[in-house]
Design a protein around this nucleic acid. Structure first.
Lengths: 252, 252
DNA sequence: TCAAGCCCTCTTGCATGGCACAGGACCCTA
DNA sequence: TAGGGTCCTGTGCCATGCAAGAGGGCTTGA
């Protein structure tokens, strides 16, 4: 599974190190990467308290780099710092999830349009290979493999937009959604996998025809469909998929 | 010493994303707001070095809150921190400006669509008032006033989308573009103001007709037109608007 | 005069400690 | 027992000190 290792900044350079391990000597960079991974993967529960002291103790560093790391994660929307109270893992409300999906629809649609305008680029080849493998996965009813391929399809689309700003904003959105975990929920709906596969084929077909308008429109419809499938398989409270709904939480 | 105390009002509105009502009286919040204002308003030159120590001295605080403030501005894309070297105000390249405008087109178009879908909301009234005043400003050839109204028009549109994530991402984009300064360059093109005013009228008209598709399409065209007008008045090297129009304009 | 290497200064990165405030447990009183 | 006030603990916030790396200037040699 392709996972963008980190979103250190939205500035100029995208990936100074060629992916993989963030061996960036900086302590806080390691803390940021690890904490982000924990939140996105659900290793820490939404709403959980993140104490500076215990994190500093755990990582073997002082409180300063931990503090700066948490501050950055706050700007990414992954944690919430309540002054003089504590730092907590954010829990997107149902409304926020809807907003995030609106943004997802927007950005992925635009990426499809931009890719269509670019003509034959290497990402197109990767997308074709991806769909061939996805067809096989659907055929074999290998949902886990298909989920990974779906993730890759969308990642390739975004990369194919050739717009670094679009890519940066997209990563932040996906992190806030913890999308990699949500995909499985979406695909658990009966028939969704094959339907999704067909929609992917249609989008790529329109891209190959250089029909940017249609590619964008169909891609948007695809995102809406995937959102419907996702929300249908989600508990009504609309919290993150990590379960363990807190009872005492004040209603939205 | 205590120069910031002499600054009358550093930030009219908090701009804390994620609906944080944090009226953070903390030092670093003040430093963040003030430094952001300076960069966006151009009080500090692009590429300029921002030393932690001199800023700390100037704000009358220690290096720690300054350091954390700069770190946040980095995630917003306003400064670049080179480890062990220094912090510098970012200078968007021409390519990045193009990418930012693509995102602007995207988001404002979506905002127009979303607003059209919402029906009659208070923002609509504000937009109608805004256009009445804009008509008057164009009539009187008051470019400065019209620039302010253009800014308000776009802000109202974004606010009318009723999508907090969209608003947050939009603000980051506009900050990176230092758009408030660019508007003047764009409007310096002959006939651009009245043209822009007509486009605004058309967009609002389509919104009132609840024609989201057309509103989005026209809004996108409007953004592209404004971008063309802007780039036509910008020096070829594509740096920030330091107002030094070179005659030899590369074709585009 | 020019070039190369060394050193010195300036920069950020991190550790540590004190401080003020929020929240809850506890105690005192009625 | 119930209510209210107080203290204690935990938290983030900030100041300060030390260390390491990067860059430029200076010296020295050819």
């Amino acid at each position: 599974m392709i996972r963008w290792a980190a979103v250190p900044e939205m500035g100029k350079q995208a990936m100074n190190r060629d992916a993989g391990e963030v061996k960036n000597g900086s302590m806080q960079a390691r803390v940021i990467a690890e904490m982000r991974r924990r939140i996105i993967d659900g290793d820490v529960a939404p709403g959980a308290s993140l104490s500076e002291t215990v994190l500093a103790d755990e990582f073997g560093v002082s409180r300063t780099p931990v503090r700066e790391a948490l501050k950055q994660l706050q700007t990414e929307g992954l944690v919430e710092i309540r002054p003089r109270v504590g730092t907590f893992v954010t829990t997107p409300s149902r409304r926020e999830i809807t907003e995030l999906f609106e943004m997802k629809e927007l950005i992925e649609g635009a990426a499809a349009r931009l890719l269509a305008q670019r003509g034959r680029v290497p990402e197109i080849d990767s997308l074709e290979r991806n769909l061939r493998e996805a067809d096989a996965a659907v055929e074999q009813d290998d949902r886990e493999r298909y989920a990974a391929l779906v993730q890759e399809f969308h990642d390739l689309l975004i990369a194919g937009s050739d717009n670094s700003k679009l890519q940066a904003h997209y990563r932040i959105l996906m992190n806030q959604l913890a999308y990699s975990r949500l995909v499985n929920t979406s695909l658990s709906q009966p028939g969704r996998a094959s339907q999704s596969d067909r929609e992917h084929h249609l989008v790529l077909e329109l891209i190959l025809e250089k029909d940017g308008d249609s590619a964008e429109r169909v891609m948007r419809e695809h995102v809406r469909a995937s959102r419907r499938a996702l929300l249908a398989g989600l508990p009504v409270d609309g919290r993150r998929a990590s379960a363990k709904p807190k009872p005492g939480l004040a209603g939205s």
